[in-house]
Amino acid sequence: MDIRVERDGDELRVDVQDNGPGMTPDELARACEPFFRGQASGATGSGLGLAIVSDAARTMKASFTLTCQGAGLLATLRLPMARAHPVDTAAARRP
Results as ranks from 00 to 15, higher is better:
residue 2 D to Y: 01
residue 2 D to G: 05
residue 3 I to K: 09
residue 3 I to F: 03
residue 5 V to I: 12
residue 6 E to H: 13
residue 6 E to P: 01
residue 7 R to H: 04
residue 7 R to N: 04
residue 7 R to A: 03
residue 10 D to N: 11
residue 11 E to M: 02
residue 13 R to H: 02
residue 14 V to I: 15
residue 15 D to V: 15
residue 17 Q to S: 09
residue 18 D to N: 14
residue 18 D to V: 11
residue 19 N to K: 07
residue 19 N to V: 06
residue 20 G to I: 10
residue 23 M to W: 07
residue 23 M to Y: 12
residue 23 M to V: 02
residue 23 M to F: 11
residue 26 D to R: 11
residue 27 E to H: 08
residue 28 L to P: 07
residue 30 R to N: 12
residue 31 A to D: 10
residue 33 E to K: 09
residue 35 F to K: 11
residue 37 R to V: 15
residue 39 Q to R: 14
residue 39 Q to L: 06
residue 39 Q to K: 14
residue 39 Q to N: 02
residue 40 A to R: 13
residue 41 S to E: 09
residue 41 S to P: 02
residue 43 A to D: 14
residue 43 A to R: 13
residue 45 G to H: 11
residue 46 S to Y: 02
residue 46 S to R: 03
residue 46 S to N: 05
residue 47 G to R: 12
residue 48 L to V: 15
residue 49 G to D: 09
residue 50 L to A: 08
residue 55 D to F: 12
residue 57 A to M: 14
residue 58 R to M: 06
residue 59 T to D: 04
residue 60 M to A: 00
residue 60 M to P: 00
residue 61 K to G: 04
residue 62 A to C: 05
residue 63 S to I: 13
residue 64 F to T: 02
residue 65 T to V: 13
residue 68 C to V: 15
residue 69 Q to M: 13
residue 70 G to P: 02
residue 70 G to S: 03
residue 72 G to E: 08
residue 73 L to A: 03
residue 75 A to H: 06
residue 75 A to L: 15
residue 75 A to T: 08
residue 76 T to K: 03
residue 78 R to S: 07
residue 78 R to T: 01
residue 81 M to F: 00
residue 82 A to L: 11
residue 83 R to H: 03
residue 85 H to E: 14
residue 87 V to A: 05
residue 87 V to Q: 04
residue 89 T to V: 13
residue 89 T to F: 13
residue 90 A to Q: 15
residue 92 A to F: 03
residue 92 A to I: 14
residue 95 P to T: 08
residue 95 P to C: 02
